[in-house]
Design a protein around this nucleic acid. Structure first.
Lengths: 195, 195
DNA sequence: CCTCCGCCTTAACCCAGGTCAAGCCCAGGT
DNA sequence: ACCTGGGCTTGACCTGGGTTAAGGCGGAGG
């Protein structure tokens, strides 16, 4: 087994026999990405995903009107990929970019479907993953519905302390749905209030 | 089989043997709700869900600061329940209220888990449901990130034409994340622009 | 060493949407 | 027919965040 820590992490989501994980490792490929390099670009087929072994990524959606907004950041142990597009069998509308020199473990969805044929554990795992992603998105929805930009900022750092210092401010702003300028103002306002 | 149309609908999501559906019908209970009656209230255990047979519901979250925001509307053929809370085994933080005299088919999650033990089809169906809910939430997230309230309004009616006339304006506003006043202004602005 | 560039801040101005308050319309109840 | 109350609109005023544009600052390359 090449990635025992990853195996343990997945096994907490759903019962996962070690043999099955070994099969999965066999079809996965490691990939290294330089800072700023894209794991996926808009227009690509959404036919693969990866687990982050090392590094941080941002999922960027470039809107028709030019602006970029950020759907999520992903660090060690988390999944990257155009998940919604994969589920809908659409080409990716998302760019996934390394914010640091990174290292990931890539799966083709096709290979993953093979694994599903072989053992029910994968079906269950996929379910858990979908459910967890749902919970995260619903939490975010809630934040947009009832919190101000400032409150969202505070929550962001509470929930993602491990990203401190690893992502540029402008990306935090794009994640919160505001501009870099507004974020800067909010921070200076808080600084003043704090003294 | 008591609900053949529902069976057909579910069968489009994942292969579902008719016998399994009959078993499910056996553990489900029909329930009628008056207008304004709650299917679930905040604090309730999130241990059941239902399919809407007739009527419309709104999922309301009452925030600590008193305001209510609306997570979703659900009409015929759709699921109601405190899904995120159920997945996290938390008590419901959501009120689910009938906006019309309604009729639903209720399942206890416990009974559903029994069904899952009996046949893999339910696992697969649960996965599809989770995935579809995820896609919907992500779409909504996108709308908050890149659209104005007015654009969100237009999209809302494009995506939910069947709700026309069945839900009060203030609820549409609470769904869009704005006040009833702002919604009214937006609508009058569009009316003027249209002549 | 200086310059350039990427990232952040600050300031001036504008506008969407929030808040508060008054008023309208209409359906239901007496 | 009259009240009443719920749901919607409108107006006046305020505020958070957008836009534009001008610096500031620190690190990489000449």
């Amino acid at each position: 087994m090449r990635f025992p820590k990853l195996f343990e992490r997945l096994a907490t989501l759903a019962p996962l026999p070690a043999e099955e994980w070994v099969k999965a490792e066999a079809v996965a490929k490691e990939q290294s990405l330089a800072k700023r390099e894209l794991f996926m670009r808009p227009g690509d087929a959404a036919d693969r995903f990866a687990v982050v072994l090392q590094g941080v990524f941002r999922g960027v959606r470039v809107s028709p009107r030019g602006g970029e907004s950020i759907k999520a950041f992903r660090a060690e142990g988390e999944l990257i990929g155009a998940y919604a597009e994969m589920l809908q069998r659409l080409p990716s509308m998302t760019a996934i970019e390394a914010l640091e020199p990174s290292h990931v473990l890539v799966f083709q969805t096709q290979d993953f479907q093979q694994l599903e044929q072989g053992h029910v554990c994968w079906e269950r795992l996929a379910r858990r993953v979908a459910e967890q992603h749902f919970v995260l998105k619903e939490r975010r929805e809630q934040e947009f519905l009832e919190l101000s930009a400032e409150e969202r900022l505070v929550k962001f750092w509470e929930e993602h302390p491990h990203l401190k210092g690893r992502i540029p401010q402008r990306d935090v702003a794009a994640y919160l749905g505001i501009t870099e300028v507004a974020l800067s103002r909010i921070m200076s306002r808080r600084r003043k209030r704090a003294e």
